[in-house]
Amino acid sequence: MPRPIGRCRHRRGGTSAISAPIAPTASRPWTACCWSRPAARRRCASWWPGRNTRPKSTGPPMSSGWSMSPPADHPAFYAASRYTLNVTRADMIRAGYSPSVRLFEAAACGTPLISDRWEGIGTLFDPRREITLAETPEQVLAALRDRPEAARRSQASAARERVLAEHTAAHRAAELEAHLIEARERKTQLQPAAAVRRLVGS
């Protein structure tokens, strides 16, 4: 493996097996991941030289002394990354259909996605053209090292189009409103039947 020139920021969830060292390019030394749990940071940092240093951040300090970048800085962070590696927490995998917001944030910034597999991810992004799904470190490394630049850009563009067409905050607000209206209408329809049952029972 080539000597890594940066350190991967990522979270490793539960028993997921795709955590691995990577070798970014010299011009883009970071591959964006999540860096929010102390145990995951210790595992990740153990792969890298100079692991006693930490990435720069303007966010508030966490309990371990590391910091998280504020949401306003996320677009620049994702846009400066060749890929975003998403490793899902074990409890979210068990729940299914429980995506991390970083998938949508990164894709909206035009950054291609690599993720572990979990139930429901295929309904959000097409694995054939919008996201790379990996189950082993070797599959992650193959995507990082071997994929042609044109294919990388094509995947990023397709994922961005999908997010803007289906996964913005406005889309989610409209879905929530539709569900609330449906629930209200269902309740209205059930009220007369409930009243009849009470009269019959009395």
Score class of each variant (00 low, 15 high):
H167I: 06
L124R: 01
A32M: 12
Q191A: 10
R128T: 12
A32H: 03
T15D: 13
D146G: 08
M62F: 05
M62P: 02
S154D: 10
A178D: 13
S69Q: 13
T88M: 03
P55H: 09
S154R: 14
A95S: 13
L103M: 14
H167K: 03
E182A: 15
R153E: 09
D126R: 10
D146T: 05
K56W: 13
R54Y: 06
A39K: 12
R162T: 13
I22V: 15
N52I: 00
G122L: 07
R3P: 13
R160N: 02
I131T: 00
A20C: 15
R43K: 12
P61H: 06
R162L: 01
L124S: 00
R28P: 00
I131L: 10
A76T: 11
L144K: 01
P29T: 01
L144W: 08
S67K: 12
I131V: 11
S98E: 02
A159K: 03
A183T: 02
A90S: 15
S202L: 08
R153P: 00
Q155D: 02
D126W: 00
T123P: 07
P71F: 09
P55C: 10
M1H: 13
E135L: 13
S81M: 00
P112T: 11
A20K: 09
A169Y: 03
G201E: 15
S63M: 08
S63G: 14
G6F: 05
I5Q: 15
T58K: 11
P127M: 05
C109N: 04
D116E: 07
L85E: 07
K187P: 01
A26C: 06
R94D: 14
I5C: 13
L176T: 14
S154T: 08
N52S: 13
G110K: 02
R172G: 00
L164E: 15
A142K: 15
R102P: 13
V196F: 09
A169F: 05
P49S: 10
R145T: 06
E149R: 05
I93M: 09
P60M: 13
T53G: 00
S64R: 03
A90T: 01
A134L: 10
W48T: 08
A108V: 01
R117V: 01
F125S: 11
P21V: 05
Q155W: 00
R153L: 11
D91Y: 09
S115L: 03
I131Q: 09
P70M: 08
A80H: 02
M92P: 04
A108S: 15
F104T: 09
L103H: 07
D146Q: 14
